[in-house]
Design a binder for these strands. Structure first.
Lengths: 234, 234
DNA sequence: GCGATTGTTTGCGCTGCATCAAACACGTTT
DNA sequence: AAACGTGTTTGATGCAGCGCAAACAATCGC
């Protein structure tokens, strides 16, 4: 195993306040791994043997229902931890993780998680802040699903993606990984048909530009209005 | 402030493995508080000055949308912590908590949370397991809202309540705090009208018995079938 | 280059559930 | 008892959005 440079992780909140030696020690126990697009990193219900840090790429976290339906729980961007089942007191992964693009991850054996967090306070605290904000996020999703119409939910989802992973372009904010209508449907609890219709409608209004597996938000503000206000049909 | 007996909390997972002196120390910093039915314990967006342990009663955790809609995030039963915003890296409460019945809580200043969890490992770990399972639960809710019909969602909600807080009676499992159709509607993202219709239908089928602010699950198994299987109309 | 595969668009009919509306049951106050 | 408030039932109506189907467009493999 080649030695990993600690600049890889030095800037991340989880590793704040650690010395170079400590970072090296953490990295010495990690193995770096390239993940090809559409490859599964870990599988729902599988033994949680490892936890991961996404160094580069985007990962889709998916939960499947017994009858085969899928729901996209969230997207992970680089710099975030994933597969931290052990931190939540679980021994199996609660969902599957699939690379949305070619990715690079660091992987550690799960049992090291508790050692790290005991040894490096920032690591534990950082993780729990992450978990806390994910809990928040999940609740927000529940609220949205309970109180909003499909159009507003899709708008919110798009805005969230644009904020998390958006890339400025000449046309607007581009979601910088391939995403299909089906994916958006699985994030918002609707069908790809409805998403397609909505995007078409928005495109004619100039709010977004979209094509095969790509979406650009042209008018974030107008989209936001749509996402928020109970729409007074005009 | 009268001295609290540590038998109050000795059995709880959060305080596992602590000596009598330690428990006394924890309790010395707590103040015990009676909360009348329908009283707010803490308010959404309010400064998270305290965290709480519910000693007796049932608490409704509610989130309100800007436009006044309410969603019931969960019910808390006795023995559970609530208001642990600080553990999640927040300084305001993300939701409101309202006593569903007369309650008794212990309250601590929020800043003690980190001290306790540093000092008593079981406390921190226990809390995070709680948070972990709540995250799980929230994700389950998202999945349900995304993939299930109203009837199944209501059935699931009822079963969850029956499991968490059910009380065996001659007729079946009674949900042992007052709960209205409106409440159930706010848990499942539907309207009280629809909930009422469903309960009526189930009552004629003998699955439940219900009246003003009370629901008894008579046939948990049949209700479960309904909640799970995509119903083949019969 | 050509077919095969995968993603997208769009039309149409149907239905689950929200919305509106009214009446009813129970408990509480006067 | 009568009057009131709060929770529940039930009917009637409308429509958002799902299911189905068919055609189209882009990309991949050979």
């Amino acid at each position: 195993m080649s030695q990993l440079d600690h600049s890889l992780i030095a800037g991340l909140p989880q590793f704040q306040g650690m010395t170079s030696e400590e970072l090296d020690h953490v990295l010495a126990n990690a193995r770096s791994q390239r993940i090809a697009k559409d490859t599964t990193i870990f599988e729902q219900e599988g033994e949680a043997n490892s936890f991961f840090l996404l160094l580069d790429g985007h990962v889709r976290v998916v939960k499947s229902t017994p009858d085969g339906q899928q729901v996209i729980v969230r997207y992970i961007s680089s710099g975030e931890l994933l597969g931290i089942a052990h931190a939540l007191g679980r021994t199996t992964y609660p969902a599957s993780a699939v690379a949305a693009v070619d990715c690079v991850v660091l992987a550690w054996p799960s049992r090291l998680w508790s050692r790290f967090s005991a040894q490096y306070p920032a690591f534990g605290v950082g993780t729990y802040k992450t978990v806390g904000s994910r809990l928040q996020e999940a609740h927000t999703r529940v609220i949205e699903m309970s109180t909003e119409q499909v159009e507003q939910r899709v708008a919110h989802a798009l805005l969230r993606l644009a904020n998390q992973t958006g890339k400025k372009t000449a046309e607007g904010v581009l979601i910088d990984f391939p995403i299909s209508r089906q994916d958006i449907a699985e994030m918002t609890g609707t069908t790809l048909h409805t998403v397609s219709r909505l995007l078409s409608a928005w495109e004619t209004k100039g709010l977004v530009r979209s094509g095969r597996q790509k979406v650009t938000v042209v008018e974030p503000h107008k989209l936001f209005m749509l996402a928020e206000g109970r729409p007074k049909k005009d």
